[in-house]
Design a protein around this nucleic acid. Structure first.
Lengths: 180, 180
DNA sequence: CATTGCATGTAAGGGGTTACATGATTTT
DNA sequence: AAAATCATGTAACCCCTTACATGCAATG
């Protein structure tokens, strides 16, 4: 959800043009929904009108001018507000993957808290559905039904393992904040 | 894409009501996009007008009547046509997961061919992106960028393993079509 | 006695994609 | 010579979600 917040979040880590933002998503369309220019540019204009971002125009030689968008104070507050929203905790691969890109908006501790939250949610999901994990023969002959549930369980388990690895990394980073 | 085709495909394996279809998706919203009633019922009406499905109304006692939708010849042809479409080969978790539910529309051999296709696509994806698999330190300091790519690689690898297991199962099923 | 399940639908509105328009520079 | 990269944008359209409206039966 909320393409505008993803865009805002990406701009928070570094000023960028619409084209830059789009490029960030290159090769990721199989995993997440990538905004098209038809929604990207209008969204940028909206954010500008609302005062959440500002523009700096760098005249391009031969090319159209680069319009570098930068988040304002108001923009950062809007972002913070969004992070506190229940929407951000939504259990969906789609939403989670999209939000992962915003990792740079958080401190290691905040990020760890977020991943921890997701781990808890996923774990409870796996537990709830473990009982219905049957063999292909059951499910009253519906192979498709079994396949999608098995696929889902597989994804959930894989993601759990991954989350634990990332959390372990983060914890060591938090405990020794100074780098060698 | 194409919610109408998913609905059509689900009806192909068994006549159902709009409510039945919706129920099939229960607990799956974290993994795939589940159509809301606001799109489900109107789509059913459209399919009916286009002659791709027929209705049989079973009067309900106290409850609204159950409207059982059933695919027609024309519907099955439309479905076959869709399966031959390049859209169906799209490399995206979202599209693939959604189509998995339609497994019952295929013979084991057809299904195997489909999974094989996806395996090939995923494998080539993993190979292409393996070179850019770096450690968290690189990626010019963009943790988010690294995270999403690592997450994607993890999902791709997990799915590959899963695909191989499912394919192995299917192949034994194809070689011994008669069950004990 | 309140909530969930069963069962159908509509209307307004929102958010997005597709297709188009433009054009120089670099790569194949 | 063609295609991809860089770079911005608009307008029509499409699909879908949200919120509403209805109402009985079973479950807790």
């Amino acid at each position: 959800m909320s393409t505008r917040h993803i865009i805002l979040g990406l701009l928070a880590s570094k000023p960028m043009t619409g084209y830059d933002i789009k490029s960030l998503f290159r090769g990721l369309s199989w995993l997440i929904e990538v905004p098209s220019y038809g929604s990207l540019y209008p969204t940028l204009h909206e954010l500008l009108e609302e005062g959440l971002v500002t523009v700096r125009v760098e005249p391009g030689q031969g090319k159209p001018p680069r319009k570098l968008y930068q988040v304002t104070e108001a923009g950062q507050q809007a972002l913070k507000k969004w992070f506190a929203t229940p929407e951000i905790t939504e259990l969906s691969v789609k939403a989670f993957a999209r939000q992962l890109i915003l990792a740079d908006c958080f401190s290691p501790a905040e990020l760890a808290k977020y991943l921890e939250q997701r781990r808890t949610q996923l774990a409870s999901y796996v537990e709830r559905t473990a009982s219905s994990a049957k063999n292909p023969g059951s499910d009253n002959g519906r192979l498709g039904h079994w396949l999608i549930h098995d696929y889902g369980a597989m994804i959930a388990r894989a993601e759990l393992t991954w989350l634990e690895a990332r959390l372990a990394e983060l914890l060591t980073k938090i405990q020794q904040p100074a780098q060698p």
